[in-house]
Amino acid sequence: MKVILGGLAQPATSLANNTGTWRNFRPVYLQKACIDCKMCTIVCPEGCVYRVSEKKFTFNANYCKGCGMCAEECPVDDIEMIMEEK
């Protein structure tokens, strides 16, 4: 990677950085009580939670740091945090 004009960086390249390795806890999307409110996608500081289909959400394990905000904010307690298996 050549340094261009003092260090220009190409846009949207942070995806190369797998912050998922930081994770100690991982969310489990129970998909039992989901009301499709999308709160989990909105509050994720990584923006790595996404909707798969109706009332079905998941997260991208490459980036999820396991902060637990999605589980905390889920209004129907449909997300659990469990210890990461390493």
């Binding site: 190369a16 950085n17 996608t41 500081p45 990584e46 923006g47 991208n60 980036y63 902060c67």
Partner: peptide, 24 residues
């Protein structure tokens, strides 16, 4: 993933309010 203009892979701390704020 959802399409965002501020992307994952940033190195903010766990539960960072500022990272969330910037993305929003």
């Amino acid at each position: 993933m959802e399409k965002h203009l501020f992307l994952a892979g940033h190195t903010a701390c766990y539960g960072c309010g500022e990272a969330l704020g910037a993305r929003l």
